[in-house]
Simulated scan of single mutants.
Amino acid sequence: MASRDDARRITGSLTDPRVIDPRQELVRHDDLSEEELAQVMGVLDAVRHWREAEQRLSFESRSRMKLNETDMKALRYIIASTNAEVAVTAGALAEHLHISTASTTKLLDRLERAGHIVRRPHPTDRRAVTVEITPETHREVRRTMGLQHARRFEVARALTPEEREIVIRFLDGLSATTLVTAPRE
């Protein structure tokens, strides 16, 4: 049975290729000095910590508001559209979320029952309705997700223009790695 110290040691080495790929079958690292390897692992650890923190925040916000991830995406879209003075229709929401109109109807029914949105007649199209976020839900989303976004903005703002370009290139490169399908054996 593994001890807590063993568990901490393993958790702390999840980005170390010497642990996860000791024969360098996937991750070549023999051309890096110990300092360079530690720095690369530091970058990957920081990305992992960011993802875990983001997932915790997202889970806590969704749990507190009794929402799933698609519900939260819908509310953020409704808020952004409202801020841009663009009326939100079910069709626009379905297109944004890449879900069917039937799924959008179920989503809107669920959000309306929970008191997060209201449907109103469209101002120019009698056949359509618009979707608006309730003031209470808008305040809650701003208090949680909005405040976090503001804090992230300040971190990015503190970087020099050159540093921002490096971070953009790094994160775009990292994102591109998730789009590659694993080879079949």
Score class of each variant (00 low, 15 high):
residue 60 E to W: 12
residue 60 E to H: 11
residue 61 S to R: 11
residue 61 S to G: 15
residue 61 S to M: 05
residue 61 S to F: 13
residue 62 R to K: 14
residue 62 R to I: 10
residue 63 S to A: 14
residue 63 S to Y: 02
residue 63 S to M: 15
residue 65 M to A: 12
residue 65 M to V: 10
residue 65 M to H: 09
residue 66 K to D: 11
residue 66 K to S: 14
residue 67 L to K: 00
residue 67 L to Q: 00
residue 67 L to G: 05
residue 67 L to M: 03
residue 68 N to H: 05
residue 68 N to Q: 08
residue 68 N to A: 01
residue 68 N to R: 03
residue 68 N to E: 08
residue 69 E to F: 13
residue 70 T to S: 09
residue 71 D to R: 05
residue 71 D to I: 03
residue 72 M to Y: 02
residue 72 M to N: 04
residue 72 M to K: 04
residue 72 M to D: 05
residue 74 A to R: 13
residue 74 A to L: 06
residue 74 A to N: 01
residue 75 L to H: 12
residue 75 L to Y: 01
residue 76 R to F: 05
residue 76 R to Q: 02
residue 76 R to C: 08
residue 77 Y to M: 09
residue 77 Y to W: 14
residue 78 I to P: 03
residue 79 I to E: 06
residue 79 I to F: 05
residue 79 I to M: 10
residue 79 I to G: 02
residue 82 T to C: 06
residue 83 N to C: 02
residue 83 N to D: 02
residue 83 N to A: 09
residue 83 N to T: 08
residue 84 A to D: 10
residue 84 A to E: 11
residue 85 E to R: 10
residue 86 V to D: 10
residue 86 V to G: 02
residue 87 A to I: 04
residue 88 V to N: 04
residue 88 V to A: 00
residue 89 T to H: 06
residue 89 T to N: 12
residue 90 A to N: 08
residue 91 G to R: 07
residue 91 G to F: 06
residue 91 G to S: 11
residue 91 G to V: 13
residue 92 A to I: 06
residue 92 A to C: 12
residue 92 A to M: 13
residue 93 L to R: 04
residue 93 L to M: 01
residue 94 A to C: 06
residue 94 A to V: 03
residue 94 A to P: 05
residue 94 A to Y: 07
residue 96 H to W: 07
residue 97 L to T: 14
residue 97 L to H: 15
residue 97 L to V: 10
residue 97 L to S: 10
residue 97 L to M: 06
residue 98 H to G: 15
residue 98 H to D: 11
residue 98 H to F: 09
residue 98 H to A: 05
residue 99 I to H: 07
residue 99 I to V: 12
residue 99 I to R: 14
